[in-house]
Design a protein around this nucleic acid. Structure first.
Length: 227
DNA sequence: ATCCCGAGGG
DNA sequence: CCCTCTGGAT
């Protein structure tokens, strides 16, 4: 199944817009229970106003909340960003650390966020168990674990560390486009042949692939038609 | 109604 | 192991 994923999504990558590790960290915190499209509409103004850890640490709470409100959970997220800025200044000289241990100790940063930063900002191996990743690997029977940390360890056993980051990106990419929580687009799924859950969603390509457009749609159609 | 690349607190 | 936090799209 992994080879099929690699072939289907050779260019899968993080869809959050950022240009520094700090920007990525902020974007990932904002992305909780929020689409990347919305985060990307929110961050340009935010990043222009707050450039450094010190800027977040010294931010006016009400103003910061206004910037991030459309991403939801804005009071919690504002608290996280304020404390995050202070913690980065205090412990890491204002820089974003590059180890899992240091990252997860930061306010508002859990394992999922920490692993995204490792993989995307520093090129270090990390398995990102978000809602998509957990749902898909359970559908595939790779693990039956519900707890995200147990899922991370179980899947980590299945693949070499060098594959962890791209695997995470491709699984999540697939979850967002095809293998949806409620109505998985089985008819447009390049993994259907090997999937224990095939048939849970529509199996007709045109109905299934409604959300996939352009070159990506053509590529999927080509893969699906020879499965 | 249900979902979106979660984390922290009780 | 629960619960809460939040707005916007579908």
């Amino acid at each position: 199944m992994k080879r099929c994923l690699d072939e289907a999504y050779p260019n899968a990558e993080c869809e959050l817009d950022f240009s520094t590790p700090l920007e990525l960290l902020v974007a990932v915190i904002l992305s909780a229970q929020c689409t990347d499209v919305r985060v990307n509409r929110t961050t340009p103004a935010l990043f222009a106003r707050y450039r450094t850890a010190a800027d977040y640490a010294g931010a006016d709470r009400t103003e910061l909340e206004e910037y991030i409100r459309p991403t939801g959970f804005y009071r919690n997220k504002a608290t996280s960003l304020l404390k995050l800025g202070a913690a980065l200044l205090e412990r890491h000289d204002g820089e974003v650390p590059d180890t899992l241990d240091d990252l997860v100790k930061l306010p508002g940063v859990g394992r999922k966020t920490a692993n995204v930063i490792l993989g995307e900002a520093f090129g270090l191996p990390g398995i990102t168990v978000d809602t998509h990743f957990g749902r898909l690997v359970r559908r595939w029977g790779w693990t039956a674990e519900q707890d995200p940390v147990k899922v991370e360890f179980a899947v980590g056993e299945l693949f070499p560390r060098k594959d962890w980051t791209m695997l995470s990106q491709r699984v999540i990419w697939h979850g967002r486009r095809i293998c949806h929580a409620r109505k998985p687009a089985c008819g447009a799924c390049p993994l259907a042949r090997d999937c224990p859950a095939f048939g849970e969603g529509p199996t007709d390509f045109d109905e299934a692939a409604e959300l996939v457009k352009g070159d990506e749609r053509d590529h999927l159609l080509a893969m699906v038609s020879q499965r």
